[in-house]
Simulated assay, not measured.
Amino acid sequence: MKLGLMIVAVDPTVGGILVFGDRGTGKSTAVRGLAGLLPPMQAVEGCRYNCAPTGDTCVEGCRLKAARRTTTRAVPVPVVDLPLGATEDRVVGAIDLERALTCGEKVFEPGLLARAHRGFLYIDEANLLEDHLVDLLLDVAASGENVVEREGLSIRHPARFVLIGSGNPEEGELRPQLLDRFGLSVDVKTPQDLATRVTVVRRRDAFERDREAFAATWKDADAALARNLAAARKRLARIAVPDSAVERAAQLCLALGTDGLRGELTLIRAARAVAALDGAGAVGDDEIRRVAPMTLRHRLRRDPLDETGSTARVDRAIAEIFGP
């Protein structure tokens, strides 16, 4: 789970991550802790859409740039929670009713998608998300922008974000269309060894008793991890992907019978991010082996004659192609 979160933080084009597992295994804690490790980003001053100084186009950002009054400021990378009970207006945005009633002006109030632009959109219990919100997220994730046409308003603004979902498989499965949009998928189990359970309980208890002291204890470790993430982002563009690595990825997907080519693309992107994290210069077999289970396990067709889990099938294919 931690490796998957670091991968999508280094390369957002991987396509997000889905974390399924038992209740109380730290899924939400890990996701929300990611925000504190990311360096601030530059955004246009006064723009409610977190637009970048160059490249992005939105109503407010374009107006500010056209007026030659564009200034930038450093803002934290947003990690926005999408509640299960959120309405469509809350997600995509709607007319500001207060200003409409008091001033008679039609003013658009941005929603959660605008806040998540250039950051992370976190869906807890993603398998319980209502179908109409799933359809909406699929459209925005595919296009990278949010289009709102209602009450005489026509608004279009960028909405590029890393989608992070979590859930408990006992409460239902995720729709295949949304599942395919996640680049990575990991399964978190409750620790079964005594030492790990004792360590987790002690750390959680220490955090609740004195949060400032706990944060100070792990300050250096957090800073080192943040520096590694920042350095990996800079190294990413220089990581070489030889033809042999692409062939390995294609062989693995062929052996598993994955549909389409999204599996190979995601596998190469994730392996390149791991190489950047490790300081390697090129993608090799080791990087592909490390990310293959989390990249491909949710892309396999169900085989009624094979009772083994999807992760075991990926591991078996890796052993056949790469060797033990």
Score class of each variant (00 low, 15 high):
154 S>R: 03
199 T>A: 10
126 A>M: 02
318 I>M: 02
44 V>G: 13
250 A>R: 12
122 Y>G: 01
173 E>M: 08
87 T>C: 08
102 T>F: 05
132 H>S: 13
177 Q>S: 13
243 D>F: 03
314 V>F: 01
315 D>H: 14
299 R>G: 00
157 H>Q: 09
286 D>A: 12
311 T>K: 14
196 T>Y: 00
196 T>C: 01
40 P>K: 07
133 L>F: 04
235 R>S: 06
198 V>D: 00
267 L>C: 05
23 R>A: 15
308 T>C: 10
42 Q>A: 14
322 F>M: 13
312 A>I: 12
212 E>I: 15
54 T>L: 14
260 G>D: 08
286 D>L: 11
194 L>A: 11
218 W>M: 11
295 T>D: 03
260 G>K: 05
70 T>A: 12
240 A>Y: 06
305 L>M: 11
321 I>R: 01
67 A>P: 10
96 D>S: 02
298 H>M: 07
163 L>G: 12
6 M>R: 15
126 A>V: 09
119 G>L: 06
50 N>L: 04
245 A>C: 07
125 E>H: 08
115 R>L: 15
73 R>G: 14
249 A>Y: 04
213 A>L: 12
143 S>W: 05
276 A>M: 07
138 L>Y: 04
212 E>V: 13
36 G>W: 13
106 K>Q: 07
92 V>E: 06
137 L>Y: 00
110 P>M: 00
24 G>Q: 03
51 C>D: 12
134 V>K: 01
102 T>E: 11
76 P>M: 04
3 L>E: 02
106 K>L: 09
313 R>Y: 06
205 D>L: 15
296 L>M: 02
147 V>A: 01
110 P>E: 01
16 G>L: 14
192 Q>T: 15
173 E>L: 08
243 D>C: 00
88 E>F: 02
308 T>K: 15
207 F>V: 13
117 H>L: 07
108 F>C: 05
61 G>M: 03
106 K>E: 06
53 P>G: 07
215 A>P: 11
179 L>K: 03
24 G>H: 07
83 P>R: 05
275 A>M: 14
18 L>N: 09
112 L>P: 04
306 D>C: 05
137 L>M: 10
263 G>Y: 04
108 F>L: 00
320 E>V: 10
159 A>V: 15
32 R>Y: 10
263 G>I: 02
256 L>D: 01
218 W>S: 10
35 A>P: 00
